[in-house]
Design a protein around this nucleic acid. Structure first.
Lengths: 196, 196
DNA sequence: GTCTATAGCCCGATAGAC
DNA sequence: GTCTATCGGGCTATAGAC
């Protein structure tokens, strides 16, 4: 109805995140961020006086809130197997069933500010820690639990990369299905096929 | 000794690859490529009249030659287990023990030319095909062999991402150690711990 | 808090000397 | 085949009206 756009903070961060996720930090131009959000560049600078680095930091903080929701079942659900199954569902949803990339990957190439890379590393460590705890609850000893948690993150990030490169998200679906067995050591409906 | 630099083609492609690998396609500025190669921008345009897209294509072609060397043991060595073990050594070497990224990841974000993304997809498919064949030779049926090959690529790409994000390459070492068991189903010195 | 307009710089790319 | 110098444009960022 007018030449003024007003954008909800939540939607704004989601639009910014979509650009950073798809294009990476250096690929996310102010013009693209302006297009995605419907705000002019000057309006983005009003919201984020720190410029593009501040936008990236805000996006990662918002991703941290999303991660908190994704990981919430790991402490809220008593059964480790059920907890991991619910986390897997939320991971799949958060990554649009493998059709979008992960900021931990795309925002950590050289060219991103050190603060951004450090923030991403913190998110990754937090995710690994939460998965380590649920793996330990399922019966793994400390070292084995940490190993499983890192493997889980590896399989998720790798599946997102392979899905993007091949142009089809089926590999991500497989990684999600394998998560419960990978983290808790129990066989769900999938079998990872590494019998001795 | 002079203001003219002459650069061997092999070294030139290696220097260009290092920049694209670390910064991604859109992050790899002509200035950075000029710095890395020791050639001025105009000299790069003399070598690559197609500009930055042509440089990226040449880098991916060179990566394809490296992949051919990495995958050569898969057909040259009779024992599947020994073949995979030798491939794993070469993969580790090609990625500097996990300290560098993979162009399949960094050059396929939005912003890269479609031709570049397609070329990367072809490299990924070729790699998966070669690993599928060795998995089949080790006794897996067709479907299982393909599944193992995709999982192997997922674990390599994921480990490279996680190693970069966390700033330490130990996760890549683990993925390399797990490759033989993952592809051939035999237990080497590592156990992936998914007992039923 | 949004906009238009623009500053100043670096981008990819080219012209032309040697 | 390398270089210096430069072009036009997109980049991040800012000024100032409404």
């Amino acid at each position: 109805m007018s030449r003024t756009a007003s954008v909800d903070d939540r939607a704004l961060l989601a639009s910014l995140a979509a650009v950073f996720r798809a294009q990476g930090y250096s690929g996310a131009s102010l013009a693209a961020l302006s297009d995605a959000t419907g705000l002019q560049k000057a309006s983005l600078y009003h919201r984020f006086p720190g410029g593009k680095p501040a936008m990236a930091a805000a996006v990662l903080s918002d991703v941290g809130r999303t991660f908190a929701e994704v990981l919430e079942p790991l402490t809220a659900i008593e059964s480790p197997a059920a907890a991991v199954a619910e986390m897997a569902r939320r991971v799949s949803s958060a990554y649009a069933d493998g059709r979008v990339g992960c900021v931990l990957d795309t925002m950590t190439l050289e060219g991103a500010p050190t603060a951004v890379k450090d923030q991403a590393a913190g998110l990754a460590r937090h995710w690994i820690d939460a998965m380590t705890q649920v793996a330990a609850r399922s019966g793994a000893d400390e070292e084995e639990a940490a190993r499983r948690a890192r493997s889980a993150l590896v399989s998720i990030e790798g599946a997102l990369v392979v899905s993007r490169v091949l142009g089809e998200p089926s590999e991500f679906d497989r990684a999600i299905e394998a998560l419960p067995a990978l983290l808790t050591g129990t066989t769900g409906e999938t079998d990872r096929g590494t019998a001795r």
